[in-house]
C-alpha cells in the first residue's frame, strides 16, 4: 500500500505492507535507527516518537495509519545543529547511561512538557511511567526533565 509520511520535515512516499509497524518503517525503511525497540508489548517506551506533535509508541501503530501525518523522531529534535534543550539537559544531568531508552525518554519528556510546562517531581515521575530505564534509577532523568522545564538551570 502506498503511503506518504512526513518524518522530521521530509515527506517519504513508500509502498509498504499493511502489517509494517511504524517503528519498523522508521528503522528499516528510512534507516532512522535512533528510535529503539525494547519490548513487544507496548510497555518500555523506547520507540516513542511524536505523531502530529504528541507522544506515541511507534511499535503500536501501523505505518499505514500514519499515512499523511507528521512524525518527529529523535533524529529530528535538534534544529540547525543546536541540541534541543531536553537533549542538553539529559547530557548535563547525566540522564543516561547505556543510552538505549534515551531517545524514547527524551521524546516522551519533550511531549510531556508541552502539556505541562511546570511539572512537579511527582508529575514528572508519573509521566515517565510509559518509559522504562534499567541503568539510571531514573533520578537523573527526573532531574534532567526538571531542569529542562526550568529553562536549563535545574
Amino acid at each position: 500500500m502506498q503511503v506518504a509520511i512526513t518524518v522530521n520535515g521530509q515527506t517519504y512516499e513508500r509502498d509498504v505492507e499493511p502489517r509494517l509497524l511504524l517503528v519498523h518503517f522508521l528503522r528499516e525503511v528510512l534507516d532512522l535507527t535512533g528510535t529503539k525497540v525494547g519490548c513487544d508489548t507496548s510497555q518500555c517506551g523506547s520507540c516513542t516518537v511524536h505523531l502530529d506533535g504528541v507522544a506515541l509508541k511507534s511499535c503500536t501503530m501501523l505505518a499505514v495509519q500514519a499515512d499523511g501525518r507528521e512524525v518527529t523522531t529523535i533524529e529530528g529534535l535538534a534544529q540547525n545543529g543546536e541540541l534541543h534543550p531536553m537533549q542538553e539537559s539529559f547530557w548535563e544531568h547525566h540522564g543516561l547511561q547505556c543510552g538505549f531508552c534515551t531517545p524514547g525518554m527524551i521524546m516522551a519528556s519533550t511531549a510531556f512538557l508541552q502539556q505541562n510546562a511546570e511539572p512537579t517531581e511527582a508529575e514528572i515521575r508519573h509521566n515517565l511511567e510509559g518509559n522504562i530505564c534499567r541503568c539510571t534509577g531514573y533520578q537523573n532523568i527526573v532531574r534532567a526533565v526538571q531542569a529542562a522545564a526550568n529553562g536549563g538551570d535545574g
Binding site: G45, T48, A55, L56, T60, A108, N127, E129, N131
Partner: peptide, 9 residues
C-alpha cells in the same frame, strides 16, 4: 490508563 503515550492514541 496505560501511560501518556497509550492515552494519546
Amino acid at each position: 490508563i496505560g501511560d501518556q503515550q497509550v492515552r494519546n492514541f
